[in-house]
């Protein structure tokens, strides 16, 4: 079988990788380009945890043959932030505690990005529809829906639509985050 070189613009940067006919976009991203944000959940397009933006539209990258995206623009969760400041959607997810185990989060955020790009002022129902292809097993969806509405309000420049349900301030950082931050602080 023929191995082909796939060229794409990944998060604004020209990239190339070699793909066999059966290589999916997800595997290309994860195993050849080192982009581990998109997750491999069900590998059959049902869970949405591998959602990325292909030429601006959300796709389940586990079902996209890599050779078909040659010349395309691909956006992953890694491209949303410069590593210093979170994107408005990411910040809204963090402030609204719209994560728990985190496995669905990159896909949820990319679906939200695609929604807000085409509809800056979505209704609750439109948010529900936009993430209907993304499965979450921790949160019960409500904080995710709330966070996306919040992000939309932030992007429109209006007051945040909602505040986190608890009044204890932002949730504590996780041990994962702490372990990285420690050396800078101490």
């Amino acid at each position: 079988m023929t191995v082909k070189i796939v060229n794409l613009k990944l998060n604004g940067v020209d990239k190339a990788f070699m793909a066999r006919p059966e290589t999916t976009l997800l595997l290309g991203l994860r195993e050849q380009l080192g982009m581990m944000g998109a997750k491999r959940g069900c590998a059959q397009g049902a869970c949405g945890s591998c959602t990325v933006l292909l030429d601006g539209s959300p796709v389940v990258s586990c079902l996209v043959p890599a050779v078909t995206v040659d010349g395309s623009t691909v956006g992953t969760v890694e491209g949303l932030s410069d590593g210093q400041v979170l994107s408005d959607v990411q910040q809204a997810f963090l402030d609204g505690f719209a994560t728990q185990c985190g496995f669905c989060t990159p896909g949820m955020i990319m679906s939200a990005e695609a929604l807000l790009e085409r509809n800056p002022d979505p209704t609750t129902e439109e948010v529900q529809e936009a993430i209907s292809g993304n499965v979450c097993r921790c949160t019960g969806y409500e904080p995710i829906i709330t966070a996306i509405l919040d992000a939309a309000a932030r992007r429109r420049g209006t007051t945040a639509a909602t505040t986190p349900e608890t009044d204890e301030g932002p949730p504590p950082t996780t041990a994962y985050e702490s372990s990285e931050g420690m050396r800078a602080d101490v």
Binding site: E125, V127, Q128, E129, I131, S132, N134, V135, G140, Y141, E142, I144, I145
Partner: peptide, 8 residues
Amino acid sequence: GPAETPVQ
């Protein structure tokens, strides 16, 4: 799914 989520 997201659309079957009750208000809590």
